[in-house]
Structure formats: C-alpha cells, structure tokens
Amino acid sequence: MDVFPSVAADAAATIATDMDRHGYGVVENCIPSDLLSGLRQFIEDRVQKNGGEYIAFSAAELAGTLLQELSRSANFQQVCRQLYESGTRKPAPPVSFYNILRCLAGQTGEQNAYFFHYDSYVLTILVPILIPTEGQPGDLIMFPNTRPLRKTYFGNLIDKFFLDNRLMQTHLRKGVLSGGLKPEKIRMTPGNVYFFWGYRSVHANESCDPDKIRATALYHYVDPHSDSWLRNTLLSLRGRKPQMSQPVAVAQPA
C-alpha cells in the first residue's frame, strides 16, 4: 500500500498554480495520524535524550521509518515530477531526494529561527510531524518567488551573498517582527504535505516555544547546479563533499 495518495494531473496543476500565486500548495489530510504516531514517539524520545534541545536526522538515520517509505512512494515521486515539470517546463531528471528531519526544541531551537535563506533545490516539500497547538508554533514564513532559477551557480552565489549576511538577516528579522515586512505565513497541520519553490523563495521559520517540539521533514528535489564545476570546487576547498541525495532513485515515467 502506498503511503501517499495518488494526485490527479489537474490537482497537481492546481498545486503548481498555488505555488506560483501564493507561494505554496498543499495536499490536505494525505497522511493518516496513525502513520505519524510512531514517528512522533521516535522524535520525542530522541529530543528527550538530547536534553530537550534541537536535533536533526539525515536520510540514513531515518531508514525504516515513514519518512523513508514516503521517499519511495510512487505517488509522491509522481507529483514531485509533475510539479517540477510545471515549474521549469523541463523534463524531470532521474535524481533522488535530499531528505532531512529537523526537530526544533529548547534554546538551540531558537537559534534556528528567522534564518532567511534560499534552498539549493528547485522544489521543497515540507511534511509537518509535530506542530505545537499553543504558544509560538514556529510557523513557516516566506517571501515567495523572489528570484528566477539562475542559469549558473555563480548567479546563485551572488543572490546568497546579498541574503546570507548579518546586515540583511537583521533587516529581515526586525522588519518581520515589527510588522514592517509582511511575509506569507503558513500555519502547518500534521497530515498535510506542503510544496513550494524553495530555490526561488526567501523563507525561514518563526520562533517555537522552547518547551515544545516543532518537527518537520524536508524533501528537496533537483539541485540545478549539481554539475557546476565552481560549486564542487568550492565544496572541495572547504573540505566538504557535495550533498548526496538519499539512495532512492526517482523513477522516470515509462
């Protein structure tokens, strides 16, 4: 049984339109609560063992969980292909997802709030697992579709240079907190799955109360600069390997 429902072509087109117009699209009530319950317990146990502080998990650490099953879901892969092709007017390449689970908690969770950034991947899929229902839930905030897909990695670097610096980060944070800047705000609901153009949209999360847990799984789809000589050279100079997608091939349509 597939853990993600089949999404008709016209429904996928509506999601893509919502992403273009409003910043994000959503498939509602697509993951039953009973499937999320085991993952919630896993998260709560691991956060507790980590002293109630922020913790993140890579795809390898999520083997055997619902999140691995979702990455292998034929229906989930299909809707991601449809959205990518709708947004780029290009055939979806045979790549895998880059998957991570982030659990905001404690004082270290606060350090991950209001960090405005562009993703390195065209499509970002957000799966809420645990979202506080009282106090500050750590809502997703977004200035949607503020740049195009850059033709070169150098163009992407220029964008990030102007965004990923203390002056701009302070300006955006103060502007949002004062109400002078009004980003799109998404109050996420577990059971729903959210899609947005992560590469093109400036986004962050608001603060989450330190005594609560905000856990979200992220799936990133298609790095347009993965073959860039400049990108891979810079990563090598920093002593880092290029980010590897989890080894679950996204099948191409027959």
Rank of each mutant, 00 (worst) to 15 (best):
R21Y: 07
T216Q: 01
F76K: 06
V7K: 04
T133Q: 12
P210S: 11
I55S: 09
Y199S: 00
H203L: 06
R147V: 15
P253W: 05
L126Y: 04
D227G: 04
P137C: 06
N99A: 15
E134N: 03
L39S: 00
H117K: 01
L177G: 04
P253F: 03
K241Y: 13
Q68M: 14
H22K: 04
S207Q: 07
R231N: 07
R200C: 05
D139S: 08
Q41W: 01
L172F: 05
R150S: 13
V122T: 15
R102Y: 11
E184T: 10
E134D: 04
T17R: 15
S201G: 05
L130N: 00
V250A: 07
I131A: 01
S37G: 01
Q111V: 05
T14R: 14
R72V: 00
F4E: 02
L67M: 15
C208L: 04
M168T: 13
I186M: 10
G198H: 04
T152Q: 04
K90F: 06
N156Q: 08
G180H: 08
S71P: 04
L149H: 12
A254H: 09
H22C: 03
V3W: 07
G64H: 12
V27L: 00
G155L: 07
R147F: 11
L130H: 00
A74Y: 12
S236A: 13
R102F: 12
F116I: 07
V127W: 00
S245N: 06
E44G: 02
Y194A: 06
R89W: 08
S96F: 06
S201P: 04
G191P: 10
A9G: 00
S71N: 06
R238F: 03
P91M: 09
L39A: 05
T146K: 12
P137N: 09
G52A: 11
T189M: 09
Y219M: 12
S33K: 07
G109L: 09
L235V: 04
S120M: 13
F76G: 06
S201T: 13
L70H: 05
P93Y: 05
N29Q: 15
P183E: 00
L149D: 10
D209N: 14
K151R: 15
N112E: 09
K90S: 14
D20T: 10
P183Y: 00
E110I: 04
F57W: 14
A8R: 08
F195H: 09
P128T: 12
I158K: 07
S226C: 07
P183N: 01
H220A: 14
